[in-house]
Amino acid sequence: MGVLDYFKSVPTMSAEEARRFLAEKDPDEYNLVDVRQPAEYERGHIPGANLIPMAELKDRLHEIDPEKPTIVN
């Protein structure tokens, strides 16, 4: 990943949009990935979120189903 990649636009969802999205869908219709550290996750996370700390993302890509929409927080 190059430095310029950080300037590309990334689609976003507001917390409210995400809340509505998650309420409407079944858990098997999306990926919900939490990229924070375990201690942060332990203190509080969105129900059903899969904890994949940023540093592990590359090695754990297989846990994210590419066929489904993915929400990252």
Partner: peptide, 17 residues
């Protein structure tokens, strides 16, 4: 179809586990 949730958990007003 990747979305970044703006504001993270601090912006989240829903249930927290």
């Amino acid at each position: 179809n990747v979305y970044n949730m703006e504001g993270g958990i601090r912006a989240w007003k829903g249930m927290v586990a």
